[in-house]
Amino acid sequence: MAEGTGLSGATLLVTGGGSGLGRRLALGAAQRGSRVVIWDLDAVRAEGVRDEILAAGGDAEALAVDVTDRDAVNAAAASTGHVDVLVNNAGVVSGNHLLEADDAAIERTLKVNVLALYWVTRAFLAGMAGRGRGTVVTIASAAGLVGVARQTDYSASKFAAFGFNESLRAELRANRHEVNTLVVCPYYIDTGMFEGVRTRWPLLLPILREEDVATKVLDAIESGRQQLVLPPMVKLLPALRVLPVGAFDWLMDIFGVNRTMDHFTGRAGDRAAKE
């Protein structure tokens, strides 16, 4: 296993860094002594986080980047230079049943949550491998461990993100590259992305605080962890698949997993909202 990456003196890039968990990761990394690069589709938000870091005496830069555009990613990567920690955080959700989902929203979810992983990681991975150090972080989701109703496109994209990380880790090991990978699978985080989401008895899982998740992710980067599931009991959900399908569905209903999105009112992403 590759070693963790110390954040003091390192360059950390976070996609979707202008708000939510990405903003918290940027601010937290800066407090630990990192030079922080914020990529976000919205230039104003990215620059706002940069200015927060600079005002606190940190080192940061901001770039407006559409991570689904391969050419834009490569141009931004050339401008950014070397990166020690890459956090693939950008993500969107539509929150609609499959028959009700807008075609453009489905395509957007898959492009941001899956395709962008390839473009952004490819832009920096060779440099990390050549220097013999670095960490690639993939923010997946608990929805990448078990499918959830009203999240067909989102769950599929996060299953793909989990698989991307797992395959990348295997590839790095096979080629003996000293680059660590970390996949993060949190339950719902109170970022505004999942507004209206509720839990119900007997699941009793709280909506996670973004600052708590950011702290745990940064700790995991420094310690060299390769998987972070929050809260830890969520790891048990995929194990239910060893049961017959009927029993699996029954337990999922008891746990309330498929009812958490019943009152979802969150946003589908910045571009979809503007259009």
Rank of each mutant, 00 (worst) to 15 (best):
G20P: 00
G16Y: 06
G58Y: 06
S34Y: 04
I38Y: 07
R45V: 02
L27E: 13
Q31P: 03
G16L: 02
G58K: 12
I38P: 07
A55N: 14
I38H: 01
G20M: 12
L54A: 14
G57C: 13
E52S: 15
D59N: 07
V37W: 05
D59F: 07
A43S: 07
R35Y: 08
R32S: 12
G22W: 11
R24P: 00
I38G: 06
W39F: 14
L13E: 03
G20N: 01
A46K: 01
S34T: 13
Q31W: 01
R24I: 05
G17Y: 04
G28I: 07
G48C: 06
R45F: 06
L13S: 07
A43F: 07
I53Q: 03
E47K: 09
E61A: 11
A29Q: 10
Q31M: 04
A46P: 01
D40Q: 09
V37D: 00
A43C: 03
V49W: 05
G18L: 08
R23H: 09
S34N: 11
A60K: 10
S19H: 10
G22Q: 11
V37N: 02
V44P: 00
D59E: 14
V44I: 10
V44R: 15
G22F: 12
G33M: 05
A46W: 00
V37Y: 00
E47D: 15
L21G: 09
R23Q: 08
I53R: 03
A56V: 03
I53A: 08
A55K: 15
A55E: 09
G58C: 13
V36G: 01
G22C: 10
D51G: 07
